[in-house]
Amino acid sequence: GPMASDKRPRTAFTAEQLQRLKAEFQTNRYLTEQRRQSLAQELGLNESQIKIWFQNKRAK
């Protein structure tokens, strides 16, 4: 629909990254900035991508 703007492409996470994020989520529903930074480095992701993933996951 018209609401779907092309400005922010959805990140396609790899299965491996998703597995890691899910495991982290089961341990911590809320990430500290430090955890998020190390996860971002570990997974080669953007911190904001991880932050948003957690927000979306909590919203469900």
Rank of each mutant, 00 (worst) to 15 (best):
G1M: 03
G1I: 04
G1C: 07
G1L: 04
G1A: 03
P2I: 06
P2E: 15
M3V: 15
A4E: 15
A4V: 09
A4H: 14
S5A: 05
D6A: 05
D6R: 03
D6Q: 04
D6F: 00
D6T: 04
K7P: 15
K7F: 11
K7H: 11
K7V: 14
K7I: 13
R8M: 15
R8P: 15
R8D: 15
P9I: 07
P9R: 05
P9N: 07
P9W: 04
P9F: 06
R10A: 12
R10Q: 12
R10L: 13
T11I: 10
T11F: 12
T11C: 14
T11M: 11
A12T: 13
A12N: 12
A12R: 11
F13P: 05
F13G: 01
F13Q: 02
F13T: 03
F13C: 04
T14K: 04
T14D: 05
A15Q: 12
A15F: 09
A15V: 11
A15L: 08
E16R: 05
E16N: 07
E16G: 07
E16F: 10
Q17W: 01
Q17E: 03
Q17K: 04
L18G: 03
L18V: 09
Q19K: 11
Q19Y: 06
Q19E: 11
Q19S: 10
Q19D: 12
Q19C: 09
R20Q: 05
L21S: 00
L21K: 00
L21H: 00
L21E: 00
L21Y: 00
L21T: 00
L21F: 02
K22R: 11
K22P: 00
K22E: 14
K22Q: 13
K22S: 12
K22N: 13
K22D: 12
A23K: 09
A23Q: 11
A23R: 07
A23D: 11
A23T: 10
A23P: 00
A23H: 09
A23V: 08
E24D: 02
E24H: 02
E24M: 03
E24F: 03
E24G: 01
E24V: 05
E24A: 06
F25T: 02
F25G: 01
F25H: 02
F25S: 02
F25K: 02
F25A: 02
Q26N: 13
Q26S: 08
T27H: 09
T27D: 12
T27G: 07
T27V: 10
T27A: 09
N28E: 04
R29W: 07
R29D: 08
Y30Q: 08
Y30C: 13
Y30I: 09
Y30K: 08
Y30A: 05
L31C: 05
L31E: 06
L31M: 05
L31K: 01
T32C: 06
E33Q: 13
Q34I: 11
Q34D: 13
Q34Y: 09
Q34P: 08
R35E: 13
R35N: 07
R35S: 06
R35K: 09
R35C: 05
R35M: 11
R36T: 12
R36D: 02
R36N: 09
R36A: 14
R36M: 13
R36L: 14
Q37C: 06
Q37R: 12
Q37E: 06
Q37S: 10
S38Q: 11
S38G: 09
S38T: 10
L39A: 00
L39H: 00
L39K: 00
L39Y: 00
L39E: 00
L39Q: 00
L39P: 00
A40C: 05
A40R: 01
Q41P: 01
Q41C: 06
E42Y: 04
E42M: 05
E42K: 03
E42A: 06
E42Q: 06
L43Q: 00
L43A: 01
L43C: 03
L43K: 00
G44W: 03
G44N: 10
G44Y: 04
G44S: 07
L45F: 02
L45K: 02
L45M: 08
L45E: 01
L45S: 03
N46V: 07
N46F: 08
N46W: 06
E47Q: 06
E47M: 05
E47D: 05
S48Y: 13
S48P: 04
S48M: 13
S48F: 12
Q49S: 09
Q49H: 07
Q49R: 06
Q49T: 12
I50R: 00
I50W: 01
I50V: 08
I50L: 06
K51H: 13
K51S: 12
K51Y: 12
K51F: 13
I52G: 09
I52K: 14
I52D: 13
W53T: 00
W53M: 02
W53R: 01
F54H: 01
F54K: 00
Q55A: 14
Q55M: 11
Q55D: 12
Q55V: 07
N56R: 13
N56K: 09
N56I: 11
K57I: 07
K57Y: 12
K57C: 09
K57V: 10
R58L: 14
A59W: 12
A59C: 11
A59H: 12
K60M: 14
K60T: 09
K60W: 03
K60G: 12
K60D: 10
K60Y: 04
K60C: 14
K60H: 11
